[in-house]
Design a protein around this nucleic acid. Structure first.
Length: 499
RNA sequence: GGCCCCAUCGUCUAGUCAGGCCUAGGACACCGGCCUUUCACGCCGGCGACACGGGUUCGAAUCCCGUUGGGGCUACCA
C-alpha cells in the first residue's frame, strides 16, 4: 500500500493571514483533497518575541472562513519544545552538531567586514574543534552558547523540487546554521524538520522564499537518517508594484477581503488560479472541480502579481450566480454595520429583503456594494448624488411635473410595474416632457443615485408609502431651488432699478 | 556583493518538457457598438505580448549560451 499523503500548512503567528499564506494553505489543502490525504495545521511559534495569541486566532478564523478545514492540529511548536531538545542531543551525539560559544556580535562584525570587502563568506564555527573537556568547562562556567549544525565543507546538495525542478547548492556556501538558540529554543531549521519527520509529512508545499533554506534542511534530514519529503516551492505573490506582497501594499489580509464583502469561494477561486491552471480556458471553478483537477505539475514557476480588479470581477460572477438566500447572512452583516438593519427583514419583510438582494445582485461586485445599494430602500438617510442633480434636476423646471406624479401615484392601482409605467408616461405627456425627463429625477428622489435597476421595478418594490415620502422630499428640495431662483431674480431686478 | 529561481499582451495565463498545427489562444482591465429611461448584466468588435543578442536547426515562443530585468535567500525570523 502506498503511503498516505500528509501535507501541512505551517504559519507563524506574527501577523494576519495574508493572501500569499492563504494560497499556500489552499494548494496544500487541494493537494490533500485531490489525493485523499491529510491536511495538517501546525503553528510555528518558536519565536516568542514575534508570535501572538491574537494573530493565531485571526489566522484560524480566516482559514475557517475560506473553508480550509484541517484534519489534524493545530499543533503548537511551543507545546513540544522538549521534542526539539531530544533531537539536538541526537544530532550532537552523532557528531553533526556542536556547541558554539562565539558571541553573536563578533560573528556579525565578521560578516559585515566580509560584505564590505566584497568577499564571499560563510560562518564556520571555530568551536567545532573544541575538545570535550574544553566544552565541559565552558558549559560548567555557564558561558552563553548556541548549537550549530556542522555543515560539510565540500559537496553539493540537490533538491528535487516538484515545481522548480532540480536545484543544486554548494555545501561550501552554506554556513554552520544555528539549530538551538542561546535561550534553548529551537530555530526554524530544526523545529520545522523535526516536526515534518515526526508528523510523517510526505510533501512540503510552501513559498519559494524557503527554497534557499531547503539544502540546510536536507542536511538535517540526512544527519537524522530520515526519509526526505517531496518539496514543492510555490512562486511568491507580488504586489502591483512588482515587489513582494507585504503590509506596505495595504489591504492584503484575508480578513480585509472578508470585511470588504468578498465571498470565500471567489477568493479561493482567484487564489487557485494565481499560479495554477487546469490547462484550458476556464476561469470559474467549483470547489469540487478544483480539488479533483489540482496538480503540482501545473503550478507555474514565475511570480504572479496580485490583481484586485480580477478578483473583484470574479467575486461579481459569484454574487450573480449564488442564490439570494445564501447571500442573506453576509448582506445582513453589512447592513448592520451601516446601521440600517431591521429585524423585520428577517421576519415579516423577509420576502422584501430577498427581492432587494435579487434586484441588486447583477450589478454588485462585492457584498458591500450590494449593501450600499440596498440601504436607500431601508432608510431615507441618503444624500442626492451631486452629479445626478447636476445632470437631471438643476435648471429643469421640474416642480410641477414631480408634484403631479406624486399625486398620480396615490391613484395607481394595482401597484405594479405596468400601471406605474402607464401613470408616469401619462404625467410626463401632460407636462409636455419626455418620459426620461421625469424618470431621472424620480430615480434620484427614490435612491439618491443616477443609476439603478429599472425605475418601475424600484417603485413597485419600494411601495407606495416610501415612494410618496421620497417624492415629498424631492418636492421640498425643488421648492427651495425655486425660492432661491426667485430671490436672485428679485435682487437682479432691484439692482437694475437702482441704476 | 555572493548563491538560487524566474522571464508570452498593462495584469493572470494557454502554448515550452516531446521544435513545425502559433500571421501566438483565453480571461481581467481599457476603448468602441448593440440592448436600455439610467447603471449593471449580456452580445458583437477593437487595442495589446513571445525582454534583448548570439547560436543549433530546413524550421525556434519552444532547445543551448550570454546580456538585461525582476524576485528570493544570505539572522540566535519563519
Amino acid at each position: 500500500m502506498a503511503d498516505e499523503v500528509r501535507v501541512r500548512f505551517a504559519p507563524s503567528p506574527t501577523g494576519e493571514l495574508h493572501v500569499g499564506g492563504a494560497r499556500t494553505a489552499l494548494y496544500n489543502w487541494l493537494y490533500a483533497k485531490n489525493l485523499g490525504g491529510k491536511f495538517i495545521l501546525r503553528v510555528e511559534d518558536t519565536d516568542e518575541k514575534r508570535s501572538t495569541e491574537e494573530n493565531l486566532e485571526t489566522i484560524l478564523r480566516s482559514m475557517q472562513w475560506l473553508g480550509l478545514d484541517w484534519d489534524e492540529g493545530p499543533v503548537l511548536q511551543s507545546d513540544r519544545l522538549d521534542l526539539y531538545n531530544d533531537y539536538v542531543s541526537l544530532l550532537m551525539s552523532s557528531g553533526n552538531a556542536y556547541y558554539c560559544f562565539a558571541a553573536q556580535e563578533d560573528i556579525e562584525e565578521q560578516r559585515r567586514e566580509a560584505l564590505e570587502a566584497d568577499e564571499n563568506w560563510v560562518y564556520r564555527g571555530a568551536d567545532r574543534e573544541l575538545s570535550s573537556d574544553e566544552v565541559r568547562a565552558k558549559l560548567d562556567a555557564e558561558e552563553p552558547h548556541t548549537v550549530r549544525f556542522k555543515v560539510p565543507d565540500e559537496g553539493t546538495i540537490t533538491v528535487d523540487d516538484a515545481v522548480q525542478g532540480e536545484v543544486t547548492f554548494e555545501s561550501a556556501h552554506i554556513e554552520d546554521f544555528v539549530l538551538q538558540r542561546s535561550d534553548e529554543k529551537p530555530t526554524y531549521h530544526l523545529s520545522n524538520v523535526v516536526d515534518d519527520i515526526e508528523m510523517g509529512i510526505t510533501h512540503v508545499i510552501r513559498g519559494a522564499d524557503h527554497l534557499s533554506n531547503t539544502p540546510k534542511q536536507v542536511l538535517v534530514y540526512e544527519a537524522l537518517n530520515a526519509k526526505l519529503p517531496i518539496f514543492a516551492h510555490l512562486p511568491l505573490i507580488l504586489g502591483e508594484d512588482g515587489k513582494r506582497l507585504s503590509k506596505r501594499h495595504g489591504a492584503t489580509s484575508v480578513e480585509h477581503f472578508h470585511d470588504k464583502g468578498y465571498l470565500p469561494g471567489a477568493v479561493i477561486n482567484y487564489l487557485a488560479l494565481l499560479g495554477w491552471n487546469a490547462g484550458d480556458d476556464r476561469e470559474v471553478f467549483t470547489s469540487a472541480e478544483l480539488t479533483s483537477e489540482f496538480s503540482l505539475e501545473r503550478v507555474n514557476k514565475a511570480n504572479p502579481k496580485f490583481d484586485v480588479e480580477k478578483l473583484s470581477w470574479l467575486n461579481g460572477e459569484y454574487i450573480k450566480e449564488v442564490p439570494a438566500g445564501e447571500l442573506r447572512p453576509a448582506v445582513r452583516e453589512a447592513l448592520q454595520v451601516r446601521g440600517c438593519w431591521n429585524e423585520e427583514l428577517d421576519m415579516e419583510r423577509r420576502d422584501f429583503f430577498f427581492a432587494l438582494i435579487e434586484l441588486w445582485q447583477p450589478r454588485s461586485r462585492t457584498i458591500n456594494e450590494l449593501a450600499d445599494h440596498i440601504a436607500p430602500f431601508l432608510t431615507e438617510a441618503f444624500a442626492y448624488e451631486p452629479d445626478g442633480l447636476k445632470e437631471h434636476v438643476h435648471g429643469k423646471d421640474l416642480l410641477g411635473v414631480v408634484q403631479a406624479f406624486r399625486e398620480a401615484l396615490l391613484q395607481v392601482d394595482p401597484w405594479n410595474q405596468e400601471q406605474l409605467e402607464e401613470s408616469l408616461r401619462e404625467v410626463a405627456t401632460g407636462a409636455e416632457k419626455e418620459a426620461a425627463e421625469l424618470i431621472h429625477p424620480t430615480r434620484i428622489a427614490l435612491v439618491g443615485k443616477k443609476a439603478s435597476p429599472g425605475i418601475f421595478e424600484v417603485l413597485e418594490l419600494m411601495g407606495r408609502e416610501k415612494a410618496r415620502v421620497r417624492l415629498d422630499r424631492m418636492i421640498r428640495y425643488l421648492s427651495k431651488l425655486e425660492e432661491a431662483k426667485t430671490k436672485r431674480l428679485e435682487q437682479i431686478a432691484a439692482a437694475a432699478a437702482k441704476k
